[in-house]
Design a binder for these strands. Structure first.
Lengths: 338, 338
DNA sequence: AAGCCTTTCCAAAACGTTTTGGACTGGCCT
DNA sequence: AGGCCAGTCCAAAACGTTTTGGAAAGGCTT
């Protein structure tokens, strides 16, 4: 049975009010009394009931994070890294993170409604922004605090933090071109994601700039998973069996698919980095440890996560934001894969 | 401004009690009234205030999960997979998961105290059990519901779910021996973890059984990270520069270190699976996708996570547990690395 | 007509906290 | 002496819900 304010007050023969205010450090309680309260509370093992405090203060010091998983068994280092950034930064502000995992759809929507209408959390972070994302519309309409990881074209002045995907993919593709590659394939992401179009634009831009004609057959869709990248690469290899039409470089929309593509290339008896160059996007931790290490466009996921959380905390505490929109410049990290 | 019970009651000219009971489906409200309440509540967009409900019911339908990170920038597929199992199962029971990330130490302790004394959550799951784990002592003493992923030797009858690490590591080592290996190295985990001793015992048991003398120099400590495995392997290679003393097989206490070891071997110009066999423990998702794919002891992390959550939910709902202790048999997964 | 169920509803308490709006001292100044 | 102020303290309200322990009304039985 946890100790309550009432217990401490009774023991000290004081009112609940005074105990509460002493603990909160108000100046209208005598120094001697405060000392008595502090030591007795400590000694009795008093810890405030967080739920009661939340109810009274009408805020929860909690941020919601609903992870959109692609399937029932999500496992993605990207979210791992992001979660670390969000979680650590939240802890630094004495905020908690309430996590739910849902496949996009009705269940996901219900989860958002419970969090928002149930006043379960003070704000939410949303990731993997979709085109015409209903979550943004919903949260804007409810005037509920949120911060996006990634840009979106839903109208409105809401805060987001992301990297310039077009620039990133442009840099990677140009790197391939400068290395002498002419036949460059692209493993795309499902087009309902904003970053899918964003990044693909960079790929095409680099090709156009170099005067390389766009070949639709060299663009293939993946589902962002490692398995998806593997399958996409297999398909690419079977589309171009002859040595002189085979792509010599692969740009994947994310690292996970790039790693899958590498596996497919190696399974085909080819040498990654030698026969076919591979590049990804994100720079998730496994990218540096793959064999060969993956060339990729670095997106500082951990730092972005921390920044997203920082912004969100400021938002729910009604502090002014320095910037509502942050678009970082991604950095090309050249490793052995291409 | 969210709609409350009071708002609905006023609109219908009913008492708060009746509205509450109608929504909860009690039989002491007339069918006609219930209908009116249901439709008006729906139409007004009423969603119960979760915090108030929690305060009144003295439970939160939330489970706490404090991730012990090894460093400031934790990133471990193991936790990713576990989180997925916990999260999905929690969602299935309409429970939420409150996540905190802390390096073991005072901060971690404070986080547990806040969760437990602050009645922030109904139960906690604890992982990476330490020898003489204070968390278990603390939670037992406070009679706070918890379930462990992994066994421990702290006395008491608390529920845990884990795999037989000794058996697992025994199977892996015996596999190496049966494949003709005589010089087998072991990359150990920090000894304060229960599973560190558990698994190491299996390694030694297999050696003893085969009459292979234990050589201390072949056992080396790693910190469970990929980087740690890499460094440990480098050290092993420099300890045994000559070809006839060099270990021909490496058993690592977890997959992450095994993957690191593979990288070190490949950096030394050696062939994993050919020159040196490598095996791990866990079967995290990247293990199947490494090059070569990693031989490992499979621990169904996702399913264990789900089972832990299921047990915990039963516990906080005072349902009888079928089994308080579950020790699963791990399965050896032989791939190309060894 | 009195008593007794059933049915339907509700006032009030409770959960543990924070905050509002005083109340009660003494001491100091006129 | 009266007024005023600073320094301490506290009762009560409020947050939004669930639950307890009836109350009122009507119908049925005797």
């Amino acid at each position: 049975m946890p100790v309550t304010l009432k217990d401490v007050a009774q023991k000290l023969d004081l009112s609940i009010t005074t105990v509460s205010r002493a603990l909160a450090g108000y100046s209208d309680v005598a120094a001697a009394t405060r000392q008595r309260v502090l030591s007795t509370a400590e000694e009795m093992g008093y810890v405030p009931n967080v739920t009661a405090r939340h109810l009274r203060q009408q805020r929860t010091d909690t941020i919601g994070f609903i992870i959109p998983s692609e399937g029932p068994r999500f496992s993605d280092p990207f979210f791992n890294e992001l979660m670390a950034g969000l979680g650590n930064e939240a802890a630094a502000h004495e905020f908690d993170v309430l996590v739910s995992i849902h496949v996009p759809g009705v269940e996901e929507e219900a989860a958002y409604r419970r969090m928002v209408y149930g006043r379960r959390v003070d704000g939410v972070v949303i990731v993997r922004i979709r085109h015409d994302d209903w979550r943004i519309r919903f949260l804007q309409q409810e005037a509920f605090p949120f911060v996006c990881f990634g840009r979106s074209e839903v109208p409105g002045d809401y805060p987001y933090i992301g990297v310039d995907g077009t620039l990133g993919m442009y840099l990677l593709t140009r790197h391939f071109i400068e290395s002498g590659h002419q036949r460059i394939a692209y493993i795309a992401a499902p087009p309902h994601f904003f970053f899918a179009t964003d990044r693909k634009a960079g790929f095409r831009q680099a090709l156009a700039e170099a005067g390389i004609p766009l070949e639709k057959e060299l663009e293939i869709l993946g589902d962002l998973t490692q398995q998806g990248g593997y399958l996409a690469m297999k398909e690419l290899l079977s589309r171009f069996p002859s040595a002189d039409t085979k792509p010599t470089a692969i740009a994947a929309c994310n690292d996970l698919m790039a790693l899958g593509a590498m596996a497919a290339i190696q399974d085909a008896g080819l040498d990654v980095g030698e026969d076919i160059a591979v590049g990804g996007f994100d720079d998730i931790p496994p990218a540096a440890h793959s064999h060969p290490p993956l060339t990729t466009v670095r997106q500082p996921i951990y730092q972005i996560g921390a920044q997203v959380m920082r912004t969100l905390v400021q938002l729910v505490q009604h502090e002014p934001l320095a910037q509502r929109h942050i678009v970082l410049e991604p950095e090309l990290v050249i490793r052995k894969s291409g």
